[in-house]
Design a binder for these strands. Structure first.
Lengths: 150, 150
DNA sequence: TTTAGTGCAAAGGCTTTGCACACCG
DNA sequence: CGGTGTGCAAAGCCTTTGCACTAAA
């Protein structure tokens, strides 16, 4: 996944949000994480940014992450154990396969069969707003590790 | 969904866990909730049980719910806003449609296409352990309410 | 100059933990 | 009796909130 810090700042600007130092630092760091395909916890992101600016507030990071998740720039990826991490989004629509042991994340192209959701809408009367598919399992490395220790 | 308090106690027994007063109270209450199709938060369940036994500890309820989720007696149903509630499971395999406004829960029969998961396993090398599908939307009542207030 | 944005610290919610006692088997 | 299970209260974790101050536009 490749995304520029600039385009993340554009996301803020498009919402009428100001171009501030904290948001610039966050955008830059996210661009780096995206390039490396790394996911992160909010607190980790904050800790890393503290090295650049020791004054940066934890709440500011939470506030920015919230905005970016809402705008679809970040994915909030839940794990089987109830925890979650964030990740710069890949394609326009995808789901995740996560390792129950090491929390590795793999983006998936699979989805529900065509028409399932519209059928659902007419059957239930719900206005369908979205959906999430999470697949859980053991990655190759952890399969081996698990077998060795059990 | 119909399940007897007795069969829930059997679930504990099958794990070698003792038949205690707190577990009996919890099993009975869950059977009632199942009959009514009601879902619940851990704290609500505790509050209700306090009326029966004011000595019952909050942690005990958490501990029992954990066991029952693990055993598949209860579903942990997540909502779009990151919260979750519990529910006595219906069929052997199903997913959920939840209302983003009132948190109503509907059990769904839909699932991933046949063979998707095995294809995934061979493509990724993961040992697939499970999956979850959550569909989010507005229930008929909340569609109307939302339209009226906006 | 105006008001969104921020840093800080405190409060919140939900859940887990530690421990002495109770009680099931 | 022996060891699991429990109640209680404290601590944990992650996240949000309130508020005076800073700085973007």
């Amino acid at each position: 996944v490749t995304i520029s810090a600039h385009s993340i700042l554009d996301t803020f600007e498009a919402l009428g949000l100001r171009n501030t130092r904290p948001r610039r630092l966050i955008a830059q760091r996210l661009a780096e994480l995206a390039a490396r395909g790394e996911d992160f916890a909010t607190d980790e992101l904050w800790q890393e940014l503290l090295r650049v600016d020791p004054q940066l507030g934890r709440a500011t990071v939470f506030r920015s992450v919230d905005v970016l998740v809402e705008q679809g720039v970040l994915d909030r990826v839940p794990f089987a154990d109830g925890t979650h991490r964030y990740r710069v989004c890949g394609g326009p629509h995808h789901h995740h396969l996560t390792c129950t042991r090491c929390h590795q994340i793999v983006e998936l192209a699979l989805c529900l069969p065509e028409g399932e959701l519209s059928a659902l809408a007419s059957q239930t009367g719900f206005d369908i707003e979205g959906h999430a598919i999470e697949v859980f399992g053991r990655c190759p490395a952890c399969r081996t590790a698990g077998a060795a220790s059990s």
